[in-house]
Simulated scan of single mutants.
Amino acid sequence: MTRKLNMWTRAAGAGTAGIALAVAVSGSAHAAADPEYAGCTTTGASAIVRDIQLTASPSGKHDVHFEISDTAKDGRNARVRYLTQMGNGKTRYWNWHANTGGPGTIVVNTTAQDNDNGIFGVGIQVARANGDTILNSCTDWAYKSA
């Protein structure tokens, strides 16, 4: 069996600062193009994710938009990563995206698709890091299947 997992970064640039409250939606049946939101704040970092499922299939492509804010002048960086709940209920932790430019917000637009396991839940993990060491973090889910 060939495993195909895709996550491409398309752009990074300046954005607006801020954090949004998570919108929780229960269940696993989500119509295409209905956005889901998650976000959280930890010491030195905050981020939001907007996820739009482009096709109704669990193995369909998702449009993922992050806003990552470094909120402390401490020489450390803010990071965010996409979390997905797979069909077996386990969590897939995607690659980190970092704001290494100091205090302020950057925007990352990307896509995600898991052909083997499907995406049955969408979340975000936000962290403050010193090099490869995670100092503190928070997690929020837009939705998870029951």
Rank of each mutant, 00 (worst) to 15 (best):
S26T: 14
S26F: 13
S26Q: 13
G27A: 08
G27P: 04
S28N: 15
S28W: 14
A32Y: 02
A33K: 13
A33L: 15
P35Q: 05
P35G: 02
P35D: 01
E36R: 13
Y37L: 12
Y37D: 04
Y37T: 10
C40N: 09
T42A: 09
A45G: 06
A45I: 03
S46E: 11
S46H: 09
I48L: 13
R50W: 04
T55E: 12
T55N: 10
A56C: 00
A56P: 01
A56Q: 06
S57Q: 12
P58L: 04
P58K: 06
S59D: 12
S59Y: 07
K61P: 08
H62G: 06
H65N: 14
H65W: 14
H65T: 12
F66K: 03
S69Y: 02
T71V: 09
A72N: 13
K73L: 15
D74E: 02
D74R: 05
G75A: 04
G75V: 02
R76C: 08
N77H: 15
A78L: 03
R81P: 03
Y82I: 13
L83M: 08
T84R: 08
T84C: 10
T84K: 03
Q85C: 04
M86I: 08
G87W: 01
N88F: 03
N88C: 03
G89E: 05
K90A: 08
K90P: 02
T91M: 07
R92M: 10
R92G: 03
R92D: 08
W94F: 03
